[in-house]
Simulated assay, not measured.
Amino acid sequence: MGRQQVALVIHEGVQALDVAGPLDVFAEATAALTSSEGYDCLLLASDTAPLRASNGMAMIPHLSFRQAERQFDIVLVAGGPALPDAEPDAGMSNWLRSWGAQAGRYGSICTGAFALGHAGLLNERVATTHWQNAAQLAAQFPACRVEHDRIHARDGALVTSAGVTAGIDLALALVAEDHGAALALACAKRLVVVAQRQGGQSQFSPLLLPHGDPESPIGRVRDHVIHHLAEALSVDRLAEIAGTSPRTVARLFVKELGQTPHDFVESIRIDHARNLLEATDRPIKTIAFDCGFSSPQQMLGAFQRRLGLSPLRYRENFRSFPSDTRS
């Protein structure tokens, strides 16, 4: 494989790590390869005037869209905090439709997915973005199937990543695809990151509890569950709290929250367990019972199913107390 031509699309207010992370991965890979291999990376924007990233850093594009009217091997759009609510950039959309989609692989980092959506490149495709913006992406571009929990996603030539540092994961995956897992691992070690992290991005997102009338049936159930996690919270018990039949409370949960009563209770238990794993050194067995799981094994299964990693690994990743603690 010869040298890969990479275009990274930037814009005013871009997230600096969305740019620097992938570029550093490609630079590390290039340094380890022969001169006839590797990656030539260029920053593209509406014009070549300096841009200011969301953290205040100045960036200077190598080429304007007009100067970059040619095919690249890889095209990625970097995200930015303001991008989901920004008006579509006509110049960017036109270039992405004309040249971005012609690349062997094209896609986005973080909220750069919104730029792809405005260009019509997410229709009937699978994509991901930052967990905080995934619901908005799905609502704004209903023809796209948004994967809320993926660190990065691949749908044919389309590659998209979750938020910020997930762009590093995506770039490492592309390097592995081009030059093998060993080189991707070597790059990850140089950058002091994991070559392939465990679990999805749900492990980084807080549980978004539903709001609403606290005196409504769902409101009463929500309040009771939060304060009585250790109880046996069957559908019959939730119906009793809501003052409805089991069938009615199940229907209300699906209609108002988009999930079953069982899934709702499990979500609350997992989120409380996450908080205890992060902030205390209590044994995992104790946390499991305190959060209403019947056993540590049941909590393990729930964590693996929802977050893609074990409670122990979650604690190792996110604990806020010294590491010489009990597990």
Rank of each mutant, 00 (worst) to 15 (best):
149 D>S: 15
198 Q>E: 13
129 T>E: 01
156 G>V: 02
159 V>F: 14
148 H>Y: 15
161 S>C: 07
189 K>N: 13
141 F>I: 09
185 L>N: 10
100 G>A: 09
93 S>N: 13
180 G>L: 03
85 D>Y: 11
142 P>C: 08
104 G>Y: 12
115 A>D: 05
178 D>L: 10
106 Y>C: 05
171 A>G: 03
115 A>Y: 06
100 G>T: 01
174 L>T: 01
88 P>T: 06
176 A>L: 03
203 Q>I: 12
103 A>L: 04
122 L>Y: 12
131 W>D: 05
186 A>W: 04
179 H>W: 14
150 R>H: 15
167 G>F: 09
193 V>K: 00
145 R>P: 06
90 A>K: 05
142 P>I: 02
94 N>Q: 15
202 S>M: 11
100 G>M: 04
122 L>A: 11
203 Q>F: 05
114 F>P: 11
119 A>Y: 08
184 A>V: 06
101 A>F: 08
130 H>N: 13
141 F>C: 10
178 D>K: 05
188 A>C: 02
120 G>E: 08
196 Q>M: 10
143 A>C: 11
131 W>I: 03
97 R>Y: 09
111 T>Y: 12
146 V>M: 04
95 W>M: 05
132 Q>V: 12
100 G>I: 06
164 V>D: 02
199 G>I: 01
120 G>W: 03
159 V>S: 13
166 A>N: 07
140 Q>Y: 08
172 L>R: 00
126 V>C: 15
132 Q>W: 12
86 A>G: 00
201 Q>T: 15
151 I>F: 10
195 A>S: 12
135 A>N: 13
125 R>F: 08
150 R>W: 14
107 G>M: 01
149 D>A: 15
144 C>D: 05
172 L>D: 00
152 H>Q: 12
